[in-house]
Simulated assay, not measured.
Amino acid sequence: MAFEDDAFERMHKIMTDGRSAMMENMNRVHRGEPAVMRELAVKGERTPSQLADATGNSPGRISAILSALEKKGWATRTIDPENRRHVIVRITPEGKRLVKLHKQAMDDRMRWVFGQMGERRTEQFLDLLARFITYMSLCGPDDPVPDEAAIAKAFERTGIPYDPAADRVNVTPITAHNTSGGRHPGGMPDDTPSPTHPAA
């Protein structure tokens, strides 16, 4: 197995391990009550459907979350006077206060993690994360595999020096990956003739 295949498998396991306490915490933050309250605090009044779209929850799940928030006094639901078929959700002052406290707690925990990692590893992590995200910005499912000029331009936009790894692979742009009869290797329909799995 090539190193990039092994790296992909390792990253996938790290990010999707259902037993991971970190992933459970992240799911609560990004899809549960904290996510809804944060959306309301940032965007102001919203409809339940807007909250469902923004947080990745089903309408039924959003309804349950809003009921819980109302009981705790953290959000309110009222009928839109201009369209009585619509419900308007607003965060309460107490809800805003709790969002602020929650953000501070999460920031403090992230700082704790960096403290545990130490300055050297933290700097390495942030540098590599910035580079990873820059490469990923070029990897849309329908985008062509970027050439050297496109990669360099992406790094220039982000203000990161473009320093290609000495041991990198897949340097030559790949023109096609689809050999599965009109379907992506993962089973998704292929609607375009463009490369299906670009690799930077």
Results as ranks from 00 to 15, higher is better:
156 E>K: 08
7 A>N: 04
165 A>I: 07
184 H>W: 10
164 P>E: 06
11 M>A: 13
7 A>T: 15
69 L>F: 08
142 D>G: 01
25 N>P: 07
86 H>K: 00
60 G>P: 00
165 A>T: 11
56 G>F: 12
20 S>L: 00
31 R>C: 09
56 G>C: 12
108 D>M: 10
41 A>G: 10
114 F>C: 05
145 V>I: 02
154 A>T: 04
130 A>L: 11
43 K>P: 13
186 G>M: 05
139 C>L: 15
195 P>W: 06
32 G>S: 10
192 T>K: 12
108 D>T: 01
50 Q>T: 04
59 P>R: 04
151 I>G: 03
12 H>P: 01
188 M>I: 11
83 N>K: 08
93 P>M: 03
167 D>R: 06
127 D>F: 06
148 E>V: 01
139 C>F: 06
33 E>D: 03
190 D>P: 02
33 E>R: 10
77 R>K: 15
145 V>W: 03
65 I>S: 11
69 L>I: 04
154 A>H: 02
45 E>H: 09
181 G>H: 10
174 I>S: 14
93 P>A: 08
101 L>M: 02
6 D>E: 14
71 K>L: 09
175 T>I: 12
101 L>G: 10
194 S>K: 08
7 A>W: 08
42 V>G: 13
105 A>M: 14
76 T>M: 05
18 G>A: 15
122 T>Q: 01
180 S>N: 09
174 I>E: 07
7 A>K: 08
107 D>E: 03
195 P>F: 10
127 D>R: 12
42 V>D: 15
25 N>V: 15
123 E>W: 12
30 H>K: 03
92 T>A: 01
43 K>M: 13
152 A>Y: 03
89 V>S: 11
22 M>E: 02
81 P>Q: 05
30 H>Q: 07
17 D>G: 15
198 P>W: 03
198 P>V: 00
34 P>D: 14
79 I>Y: 09
29 V>K: 05
188 M>D: 14
60 G>W: 01
199 A>C: 12
131 R>Q: 11
153 K>Y: 10
45 E>D: 11
29 V>R: 15
122 T>M: 06
132 F>G: 05
63 S>L: 10
14 I>Q: 10
20 S>Q: 05
81 P>K: 15
121 R>H: 07
86 H>R: 07
143 D>T: 05
10 R>Y: 08
127 D>L: 13
142 D>L: 04
41 A>Y: 00
16 T>H: 14
37 M>R: 04
144 P>S: 09
178 N>A: 03
177 H>E: 13
17 D>K: 07
168 R>F: 07
40 L>E: 02
58 S>I: 00
158 T>H: 13
142 D>K: 02
3 F>W: 12
150 A>H: 12
8 F>A: 08
113 V>P: 09
165 A>W: 05
72 K>E: 08
175 T>Q: 15
83 N>A: 09
195 P>R: 02
118 G>N: 07
198 P>H: 03
168 R>M: 06
16 T>Y: 14
100 K>T: 15
37 M>D: 01
133 I>W: 09
101 L>S: 04
81 P>H: 06
96 K>C: 15
21 A>R: 01
92 T>R: 13
32 G>L: 03
113 V>L: 14
66 L>I: 01
42 V>W: 10
158 T>E: 14
91 I>H: 07
13 K>G: 04
124 Q>W: 11
78 T>G: 00
126 L>P: 04
11 M>E: 14
138 L>D: 11
98 L>F: 13
135 Y>N: 05
8 F>H: 13
94 E>C: 02
187 G>K: 08
24 E>L: 09
159 G>P: 13
191 D>W: 09
